[in-house]
Simulated assay, not measured.
Amino acid sequence: MTGICEGRVVAVTGAGRGLGRAHALAFAAEGARVVVNDLGVGLDGTPAADSPAAHVVEEIRARGGEAVAHGGDIATTEGAASLIRTALETYGSLDTLVNNAGFLRDRMLVNLDEEEWDAVVRVHLKGHFLPLKHAAAHWRAEAKAGRVPAARIVNTSSGAGLLGAVGQGNYSAAKAGVVALTLVAAAELARYGVQVNAIAPAARTRMTEQTFAASMAPPQAGFDAMAPENVSPLVVWLGSAESAGVTGRVFETEGGRITVMDGWRRGPSADRGARRTPQEAGETARKLLGEAGEPLPVYGAS
C-alpha cells in the first residue's frame, strides 16, 4: 500500500457490503480512518437482521486500521447530519465523503408504482444530497475560519444514469440526477477547497449479481473483472489529496478499465434568427439528426 490517505478521515455510505465495503477496506489499507455507514437493509430497502457496518469495522480493525460504524439513514436530515457528526466527534475531522448507498426496485415503467419510484429516488438522490450538504456546511465553516480543507466528495452514478437501463426507470433517473448534482456541487464548493467527482462503476454486488447474472458471474480462473475491489483504487485516489485539481468529472470504471466520460456536448446546430413553422422545425431537426452521430443504446435494449 502507498499510504496516500494516511491521516485522512473518510465517511463511506452503504459500506456494509459490495462496493461500499470494498471502498472502506481500501481506504483503511491506505491509512484512512473510516466511518462505515450502512442502514443494514435488504435489496428492496427492508430492514435486515444483522449489522453489516459493524462487520466491516471488525474487518478493518483486525487488519490494524481504525474505523467506527454508523447505522443512520443518510436519506434523512438527522441521519446525514449524524454521519458527519460521528466523523468529527470520533476523529476530530472529515476529509472525504463517498456517497454509495442504494437499493433497487426494478419494474418496467407501466408496472412501476409511485412508492417504488419514491423509494429509489429517495435513497439514491436524496441520500447523496443530504450527506453532501452537511459535509459541505462543515467545510465551508472551516474555509471561512481560514482552514481551507483538501476535501473530497466521490458520488456514485451508474451506466444506467448515463445511458438508461430497461426496467430501471427509477434507478436510471436517480443516477442521472447524481451526475447533475455532482456538476453543480463541484462548481459551488470549489471556493471552499472541496472537489466533487462521480464514478459510474460496473461490478458484482447484491444489486447486479441477480439483474445481470450472466455477465457478473466470477470466472473459474484468471482476472475477476467484476470484483468490486477493482473499482476502489480510483475512488481512493479521488478521495485523496493526490487528486488535486480534478473536480466536476465523471469516470466510468469496470475491471481494469477507467474511462473519462464526456457528458453532454452541443452537436450540430442551426440558427435562422427567426421563428420556424412546425414543418420547418421538423425539416431542420431531421437535417441536424443526419449530421449527428448515433446515440449509444440503452442498457437492456434489443
Rank of each mutant, 00 (worst) to 15 (best):
V154H: 04
V246S: 01
K144F: 10
E116R: 11
V56G: 07
N197R: 01
G267Q: 10
R152K: 11
V36R: 06
C5D: 13
G293N: 13
G222W: 15
L132K: 10
Y91P: 00
A143Q: 06
L19N: 02
C5I: 11
G248W: 12
W237Y: 03
V35M: 08
A227C: 14
L83Q: 00
P149C: 00
L109N: 12
L288T: 04
A143W: 03
E59S: 15
L104P: 06
L112K: 08
V179Y: 08
V178W: 00
A241Y: 07
G177Y: 10
L25F: 10
V250G: 07
K287V: 15
E291A: 14
H23F: 00
G255D: 05
H134R: 03
A200I: 05
E188A: 09
E142L: 14
G222A: 06
V148G: 13
W117I: 04
T205E: 05
K133I: 15
P297S: 14
G273H: 02
M261S: 10
G293A: 15
D271R: 13
A285Y: 08
V235I: 10
V196P: 02
A198T: 07
A53I: 06
G18K: 11
A151E: 13
R249N: 06
V121S: 03
G177E: 01
E78T: 05
A221N: 08
V184S: 14
G72M: 10
L25R: 09
G164R: 14
V166M: 02
G255L: 11
A176V: 06
S232C: 08
L88V: 01
Y299N: 04
